[in-house]
Design a protein around this nucleic acid. Structure first.
Lengths: 106, 106
DNA sequence: CGTGTAAGGAATTCTGACACG
DNA sequence: CGTGTAAGGAATTCTGACACG
């Protein structure tokens, strides 16, 4: 029972309170693929603390005039970078090559 | 927006899924003062990840034959100890006395 | 494009109580 | 004592749509 930040456990009502956004906005940002709540068996949306933070960040940017489409593109890029780093790590782990950061023995 | 473990954000349905307990049991352990969910404005219970862990622990002990009353007493004792430690720390902080653990300079 | 709202239905949660033992 | 269940009401959530611009 770990990784509290990523676990999808909150229904939309509490998300509304925590973010101060309307349910309409929360669902709209999902429609624009900026967040991806989990769906319970019966279909209710479940969000994580991480989703809350993302929502707050999104709404601030939208208020400043950002387009949801552009925010989506930004997120895609970030995800690509993360994936690249993961692959690099995996390659390093597999071949046992020089570490990215050298640490002197002491 | 921190301290995810203690934040009361989950409604009873997700708690049921996460713990495997029935709603009846979850509410009963509250009645016996073993957990204290937060109440939203409209009266729905809200639980934290910490509550989830407590519930799992409680139910395991009850299955083994423990009485909820005794579990309550145990918890009271633990809380008292924690309070004592806090007071000790505050006294130390106030008078700036010798630290509990001495660290050599190096 | 981003958001509000009214609409109707389905699923959730709540309380107090009766039951068993 | 710990837990199941049926009961009725109140609050929640969901979807698709119309509206404005």
């Amino acid at each position: 029972m770990m990784d509290y930040k990523e676990k999808k456990v909150m229904s939309i009502g509490i998300v509304r309170e925590l973010t101060g956004l309307t349910e309409r906005k929360i669902r709209y940002y999902e429609e624009r693929k900026l967040i991806t709540p989990f769906r319970s068996e019966k279909g209710t949306r479940l969000y994580s603390f991480s989703d809350i933070e993302t929502l707050i960040s999104i709404s601030q940017k939208v208020e400043k005039g950002a387009k949801t489409y552009d925010l989506r593109q930004e997120m895609r890029k970030q995800e690509a970078h993360i994936r690249k780093d993961l692959i690099k790590e995996q390659v390093n782990a597999h071949f046992g090559m020089k570490p990215t950061i050298k640490r002197p023995y002491h």
